[in-house]
Simulated assay, not measured.
Amino acid sequence: MTIPIRQIRAVYDDNTIRVYQAYNNAIADSALANGTFVSPPFKMERMTWIKPSFLWMMYRSGWGKKDNGQNRILALDVSREGFEWALNNSLLSHQAKEFKDKEAWLKIKKATPVRIQWDPERDLDLTPLEHRAIQIGITNEAVDLYVNQWIKQVTDVTELAAKVKSLVDSNQYSQATSLLPIELPYLLSQETANKIGAE
């Protein structure tokens, strides 16, 4: 079965959808203790990127080994209502190319709290695939909503990442695949799909 080029795939149920982020020990421990991010150590004023794809998170963080700032992988179950609010209040990063007037683009960008990027999905070797994975960058009011309303549960999946990586390193691909979170296509309204360029 051919996977559409731009499609959201995720672990989700009727109420929540799972996204991933990688942080240092201080932020991860604080989030796990409090059930959401707390500032400090989390910085509310920075743009934060959430990713529904486990393997794209592994690529971005180097399986949690890239650097000390990304050595803990967190799975965050966020409300579907919040997730869809983010999509509907977003701007596609690549739309910048469509603007000849840079000032106009910066004004729209500043007024839009969510940025969407579609980057090549990855396989177990972290090789880029034809189809894309969504990255959602949230800033300003969206960060406040994410931290204070959307996040329902925080789980540390650093150990899972290490297990999968160790199986990949020993060429045990079927066992590694069996440990991966089961990410299914996430259905969107036509309006939302159009907004974010999904198929």
Rank of each mutant, 00 (worst) to 15 (best):
I3V: 04
P4L: 00
R6D: 00
Q7P: 05
I8N: 02
Y12S: 05
Y12R: 01
D13L: 09
D13A: 09
N15A: 11
N15M: 08
T16A: 12
I17N: 01
V19Y: 07
Y20M: 01
Q21E: 11
Q21M: 09
Q21I: 06
A22V: 12
Y23D: 14
I27T: 10
A28T: 05
A28S: 15
A31W: 08
A31C: 03
A33L: 14
G35S: 09
T36M: 09
T36E: 07
F37Y: 13
F37T: 06
F37I: 11
V38G: 02
V38H: 08
S39W: 03
P41N: 07
P41R: 12
F42M: 03
M47N: 13
T48G: 12
I50W: 04
S53I: 02
F54P: 03
W56Y: 11
M57E: 07
M57W: 09
M58G: 03
Y59I: 11
R60D: 01
S61C: 12
G62R: 13
G64T: 14
D67S: 15
Q70T: 13
N71Y: 11
L74I: 08
L76N: 08
L76K: 00
D77I: 01
D77G: 12
V78E: 04
E81W: 14
F83N: 05
W85M: 12
W85C: 10
L91K: 11
H94M: 10
A104K: 09
K107Y: 14
I108K: 06
K109R: 07
A111R: 03
V114R: 05
R115Q: 14
R115S: 13
W118N: 04
D119E: 08
R122E: 04
L126Y: 06
T127E: 14
E130C: 09
A133S: 03
Q135E: 12
I138R: 05
V143Q: 02
D144Y: 14
Y146N: 11
Y146F: 15
N148S: 15
N148P: 13
Q149T: 15
Q149E: 14
W150M: 05
I151Y: 03
V154G: 06
T155V: 04
T155E: 01
E159Q: 10
L160V: 10
L160M: 13
A161L: 09
A162L: 08
K163W: 00
S166D: 07
S166M: 07
S166G: 04
L167G: 02
V168E: 08
D169Q: 04
Y173H: 04
S174I: 12
S174E: 15
S174L: 08
Q175R: 15
P181F: 00
P181W: 09
E183Y: 00
P185T: 01
L187H: 01
L188M: 03
S189M: 02
Q190C: 07
Q190W: 04
T192Q: 03
K195S: 02
A198F: 01
